[in-house]
Design a protein around this nucleic acid. Structure first.
Length: 936
RNA sequence: AGGCGGGUAGCUCAGUGGUAGAGCGUCGGCCUUACAAGCCGGUGGUCGCAGGUUCGAAUCCCGUCCCGCCUACCA
């Protein structure tokens, strides 16, 4: 049984996303539809999706929109499929990013964090976090995310902090965390070490500068010319290397060079690994403390390491006369000094890779420093194994290779950072016994070894990715064995952009397996990068950044481009923007309010197989039209649905059209489900789009019209129920993709009596939703083909759409004639005929008729007076050409050597059948040609 | 340098062995009382190039040319 009242009242003539979307989020929260259950007796399978935690500094961008949409689709879909579902939200404290933001604010007031001191500075950061942090959550709600916000975790929460310390302590005790002096990347602006992942290298213009090292007098004098891109590092040189086989320098092996600026003799060494005799002068200055290759060379030759830089990038006392200069000043000064000494030997332009901090964008310096490291090899092994054995699947699969490659060549991970904002390293140094106490407490009173109170905690904090690496279990109460941990670990899927595969996903895999004994998720789903319409990355420089909220709420282009390119002139910004999004050329003054549903649907309609998604505003617009279509289809149907019965079972259907409709519904369920399960939402959305628009609206609704206008009450009742059922199930099918409009319309449609409070708690329709009738499907295909043929003739003959025509259909088989007769109401309505005759083949053709063929049926359209003989002849000629081409292709295929013998029997049979059909068609077209000639 | 991915209709992209598809665009006709944000119809591709395997290749293999991304790196 069902609710019989429908609610067409107040349904606006067009879909207005603003008014619809506003009311439902609060409704969902009020009815708590997003929360999973922890009840003992609840034995539904769980579906857990950890949200890739946005930075506390973040605000919603197109990448989030894509990611959040895909994840919410997964979440809503599984919830509807009967899973106990948790979409775990949270926010990352984002160490460097946040500290940089707050420091920038302080600088505006003329103070540095050091002026404030650590404690006061952290208070400022917390204050900032309370005020401006987490704005993104509100924006995520606009997107409709069905996350359980009551479980949201901030990575600096006490409980999470405890988990972070615990992980550190355990790894330390297991010998997997160690402290050592290593060559690391140093960010001179943020004054912290960076892991190699946080460094981005890009090719830039530079110069290759050559200068001469004088050979010491004791070794006979003369000079050796070296080439360098960083002349200032020569102050830290402890050798010059040449290739052992290089004849030019053989006489210099083992000789000493006099350093021009400091009192140091530098040996000439031979090294076949470092030196490429073809490059530069074939002689390489070696600076082991400031270059990774030189460092290794130094290890091989036991060279001293001389650190010449302070932490802020200025030269230290080792810089001799250049001490105190900034590194870039020093470069100029060293070059000048070399020139003055007559040692400069010229320079040439040179393209080279410059490593920069991905946060501060400053050039990073390789530097020698004592830091904390994670020994990664033992952690990487099982993480590799999990993917190799398929315990965790990476989708799309092609990323598996990338993952393997990285995991196999993984370097130890530097996890300490010289920042203030973050998880303080739980290590205390004892001044009395030198012991390092590593223990999971917030504050420690005394050394755990000797009891001395003279201890000092490590000043550094942990890499943000260390804490986020614990996300799948750190959010569930670990290290305690909570009910949440038991139920929600491991997670089901991890969905994210491929750009953080190493940063985050790989680390979660390592940590999850290590601490929990099994991989943190069953599937890793990686989506593409959202780029502009021409394929370029979104950036402020290019002025092609689009705020997803502007697409949802609407915005004029002036607003949009001002945001996209702050500081640029309006004209310039507009020009760049329009170039980046050609489809906006015809969009008037700005983006309309397309609404969340249209944006979400669009995000889902791109293939996840590619690496980049070129965002097309036009596409979003057309998907809003689709929303409008859904809206109006429902608005049209509602008045006819009074008294309809909708239940969990499909309504009985006796007519071919209704059977056909239910069959198509069943098929689209399969398509939608297969798409989501395979992480191919594009296939789901395309299938649903075609079903709803191309079949339900274009055909079924049109076919319902004569039924509802007629007086066959039994037929009306059956049709009403089928229509109501198909609409209600369509909304459910589309709900994960477009939650708002489906919820709105669902509440207005007849639906089962025991329906839940929200469509998001209704079950997701599956293939068994309705019986399939393949005969009905095939027969309707034929009927639709016939209708299409008549319409084509009408259109090409320029028959006014309002005019009625006389149609004769002929077929040799009784069964087909019965079919056409039975569906005459459909044909008459959709072809606008005033006279429809179904006849056996063979009779004489009426004069003045156009003849065409569809599904083997001769279709005669009587067009006395309106027919242009020439046009008709041309049309027939075109058809004949096409048919003959087909016949030729089929005959060629059939007669090809080996086809009959080697091809599967059914393919041969099918081809023969097609040929027979084509030949019959050809024969009828000849008659059509004769008819056309009669007209003349 | 290595790895990965891509080159299919004017544009953006689906399509992993059986005579090429969608959306948008374009062209023609319609304000047919759900929707002009709409309806009906048409147009449009030798699937980057060259070989090979196969009865049959957009699809599998080899080569080649472009484009993109990632990793590493010449001082």
């Amino acid at each position: 049984m069902s609710q019989t009242d429908t609610h067409a009242d107040g349904l606006a003539k067009a879909f207005e996303p603003e008014t619809v979307e506003q009311r439902w989020y609060a409704y969902w929260e009020e009815h708590n539809v997003f929360a999973p259950s922890l009840e003992e007796g609840d034995d539904r399978p769980t579906y857990v999706l950890p949200m890739p935690l946005p930075n506390v500094t973040g605000s919603l961008h197109m990448g989030h929109a894509m990611m959040c949409t895909l994840e919410d689709v997964l979440t809503r879909y599984h919830r509807m499929r009967g899973y106990n579902t948790l979409y775990q939200p949270g926010i990352d404290h984002a160490g460097i990013a946040t500290q940089v933001v707050v420091e920038r604010q302080l600088r505006r007031d003329g103070i540095s964090r050091h002026d404030l001191g650590r404690e006061a500075f952290l208070e400022k950061v917390w204050a900032w976090k309370e005020k401006s942090g987490g704005r993104i959550v509100e924006q995520q709600k606009v997107l409709g995310l069905s996350a359980d916000w009551s479980r949201s975790v901030f990575t600096m929460d006490d409980g999470y902090a405890r988990a972070v310390r615990e992980a550190f302590v355990r790894l330390y005790e297991e010998g997997l965390i160690y402290r050592a002096e290593r060559l690391i990347y140093w960010d001179c602006q943020a004054k912290t070490v960076l892991s190699n992942l946080e460094v981005e290298s890009e090719e830039e213009n530079g110069e290759l500068f050559e200068f001469a090292y004088p050979i010491s007098e004791a070794d006979g004098g003369g000079e050796l010319v070296v080439a360098t891109t960083r002349p200032e590092t020569m102050l830290g040189d402890t050798a010059v290397a040449v290739h052992p086989d290089d004849d030019r320098y053989k006489h210099l092996h083992g000789k000493k060079l006099q350093h021009p600026f400091v009192d140091r003799l530098v040996p000439v060494i031979t090294d076949a690994i470092l030196v490429d005799p073809e490059f530069g002068t074939g002689a390489v200055k070696v600076t082991p403390a400031h270059d990774f290759n030189d460092f290794e060379t130094g290890q091989r030759h036991d060279l001293p390491l001389i650190n010449i830089l302070d932490l802020d990038g200025k030269l230290n006392e080792e810089g001799g006369p250049f001490a105190g200069l900034d590194r870039f000043e020093a470069r100029k000064a060293v070059k000048k000094a070399l020139k003055d000494k007559g040692l400069a030997r010229g320079s040439k332009n040179h393209r080279l890779m410059i490593p920069r901090s991905d946060r501060t964008k400053t050039v990073v310096e390789p530097m020698l420093s004592t830091q904390w490291f994670v020994k990664t090899k033992p952690l990487a092994e099982p993480a590799l194994e999990a993917v190799r054995t398929g315990k965790t699947k990476i989708i799309p699969e092609e990323w598996t290779k990338t993952y393997e490659h990285w995991m196999t060549n993984i370097l130890d991970w530097c996890i300490s950072r010289q920042l203030w904002w973050g998880h303080r390293i739980p290590a205390w140094f004892c001044s009395d016994c030198d012991h390092i106490s590593v223990i999971n407490v917030e504050t420690l009173e005394a050394c755990t070894k000797c009891g001395s109170k003279d201890i000092k905690q490590d000043e550094d904090v942990l890499d943000t990715w260390f804490s986020s690496g614990l996300w799948p279990f750190g959010t569930q109460g670990w290290p305690d064995e909570t009910p949440e941990l038991k139920r929600f670990y491991p997670a089901s899927d991890l969905e994210t952009g491929y750009d953080i595969l190493f940063f985050w996903v790989a680390r979660m895999m390592m940590m999850g397996i290590h601490f929990m004994g099994e991989p943190p998720f069953k599937r890793i789903l990686l989506h593409p990068l959202v780029v502009d319409e021409t394929g370029k990355k979104m950036s402020k420089v290019l002025g092609n950044v689009i705020d997803p909220l502007d697409l949802i709420h609407g915005a004029d282009f002036e607003t949009v481009v001002t945001k996209a390119m702050p500081g640029a002139s309006l004209e310039e910004a507009m020009k760049k923007f329009k170039k980046s999004y050609p489809s906006t050329a015809k969009m008037g003054k700005g983006f309309d309010a397309y609404g969340t549903d249209a944006v979400r649907w669009t995000m889902c309609s791109y293939s996840t197989l590619t690496k980049r998604v070129p965002l097309s505003p036009k596409r979003i617009e057309s998907n809003r039209f689709f929303c409008n279509k859904i809206w109006n289809a429902t608005r049209f149907a509602l008045p006819y649905l009074e008294g309809a019965t909708v239940s969990e079972a499909a309504p009985p259907a006796t007519t071919r059209i209704n059977k056909w409709m239910l069959t198509r519904l069943s098929r689209v369920c399969e398509t939608a489900i297969a798409g989501v399960d395979a992480f191919r939402f594009d296939e789901s959305t395309i299938g649903l789009y075609r079903f709803f628009w191309g079949e339900l609206c274009d055909w079924y609704l049109e076919l319902c019209k004569p039924v509802f206008a007629g007086d066959d009450e039994a037929l009306k009742s059956e049709t009403r129920n089928v229509l109501a059922f198909c609409l209600e199930r369509s909304l459910r099918l589309m709900h994960p993709f477009m939650p708002f409009i489906t919820e709105e319309l669902w509440h207005r449609l007849p639906r089962p009596d025991d329906s839940p409070v929200s469509i998001s708690l209704a079950s997701y329709p599956e293939a068994g939703v309705a019986p399939r009738d393949e005969a009905a499907e095939q027969e309707m295909d034929a009927v639709m083909a016939v209708i299409g043929a008549v319409r084509t003739v009408r259109s090409e003959r320029e028959v006014h759409p309002g005019a009625t025509i006389h149609v004769v259909l002929r077929h040799p088989e009784e069964a087909t004639r019965e079919l056409l007769t039975a569906e005459r109401m459909a044909i008459e309505t959709l072809c606008k005929t005033d006279q429809l005759e179904v006849q056996p083949s063979g009779a004489d053709r009426p004069a003045g008729a156009a003849l065409t063929v569809a599904a083997g049926v001769e279709v005669l359209v009587l067009l006395k007076g309106v027919v242009d003989a020439e046009k008709e002849a041309a049309r027939v000629e075109r058809e004949i050409n096409k048919t003959e081409k087909n016949i030729a292709a089929l005959e060629k295929k059939l007669s090809a050597k080996g086809f009959a013998e080697r091809a599967p029997a059914e393919v041969v049979a099918e081809t023969k059948e097609q040929l027979v059909e084509m030949k019959e068609r050809r024969r009828l077209l000849d008659e059509a040609k004769a008819l056309a000639a009669e007209l003349a």
